[in-house]
């Protein structure tokens, strides 16, 4: 028997704001194995961020079942590292203190932090160096560029070695070069620690480069309409993304999304019918 999925989403629907509200997800199904790297792509506004909130238990689903690590999710899962499209750093903390924030919250680090501060701090510095922020530890977020803040925010998501890493377009606001650098860093960290990763992205090259499996969502109300294994060998290199097989995969994904967007008006009508 195969091991049960680490993250399982079964027939989950989500409607914001009461009966007449926006139906963001409808009967979505999703299963992610432990240690798997999954990318979720789909048209804008289709419910990707919503899916992330439901998996981490930040919001309760309107219908359906979410389980993480075998347990039904009824509140925040308390094991997830998160990063969003905007960096959401705390302006009154230095970059180093921002990165170390999860250690002040998550057990067992929380208990050990005072005693083993030096070790934790070294880890944080190393992580910052990995994303090219060595020398900026004592700066404040507003003294860094947007892209640098975003990199610090990624470090904050990683510092406590979460079993579940939820990344919601973390590279969306970055220039292409920084983005590609960070893909490499993320792949490296993932290969070293093997967390379960769910990455939302608009960048199909990014999805294909990083993920073991790419899931395509329909237009709102969202559900998974296609999935594609990505078999390329790891560690993947940037050059690989220009190989014909890789390009073919990206095109295939693009076609799926184009189809999903076409289907959009239909989906809206479905929803209207559903309200009645």
């Amino acid at each position: 028997m195969p091991p049960p999925p680490f993250v399982q989403v079964e027939q989950v629907s989500m409607r914001y704001g009461g009966l007449e509200g926006t139906l963001a997800l409808q009967a979505a199904d999703l299963a992610v194995a432990r240690g798997e790297f999954v990318a979720v792509v789909g048209p804008s506004g289709c419910g990707k961020s919503t899916l992330m909130r439901l998996v981490t238990g930040l919001w309760p689903a309107t219908a359906g079942r979410v389980t993480v690590d075998g347990r039904p999710v009824s509140g925040p899962v308390a094991i997830a590292g998160m990063a969003f499209q905007n960096p959401t750093l705390l302006p009154w903390r230095s970059i180093l203190d921002n990165v170390m924030l999860p250690l002040e919250v998550v057990e067992p680090h929380r208990r050990q932090l005072r005693r083993e501060r030096a070790r934790y701090e070294a880890e944080a510095r190393e992580l910052l160096a990995q994303v090219g922020l060595a020398g900026f530890e004592q700066k404040y977020p507003w003294q860094l560029s947007g892209g640098m803040q975003q990199r610090a925010s990624l470090c904050r998501a990683l510092i406590h070695r979460p079993a579940l890493l939820m990344l919601d377009e973390p590279f969306g606001a970055l220039d292409i070069f920084t983005r590609e650098d960070l893909w490499a860093v993320l792949q490296e960290v993932w290969m070293a620690r093997r967390p379960t990763v769910i990455l939302v992205t608009h960048d199909l090259r990014e999805a294909a480069y990083l993920a073991d499996r790419v899931l395509v969502m329909s237009a709102r109300p969202g559900r998974i309409i296609a999935e594609r294994e990505v078999g390329f060998q790891r560690p993947r290199r940037l050059e690989d993304t220009y190989a014909p097989e890789f390009q073919a995969l990206v095109h295939e994904l693009r076609d799926h999304i184009a189809a999903a967007r076409e289907e959009g008006p239909d989906a809206a009508r479905r929803e209207a019918a559903d309200v009645r």
Binding site: G57, V105, M166
Partner: peptide, 15 residues
């Protein structure tokens, strides 16, 4: 979103 980051880490309301 900032609250979400902390809540997903299991932060209590007091945290």
């Amino acid at each position: 979103e900032l609250k979400d980051v902390l809540r997903a880490l299991g932060a209590k309301q007091t945290d």
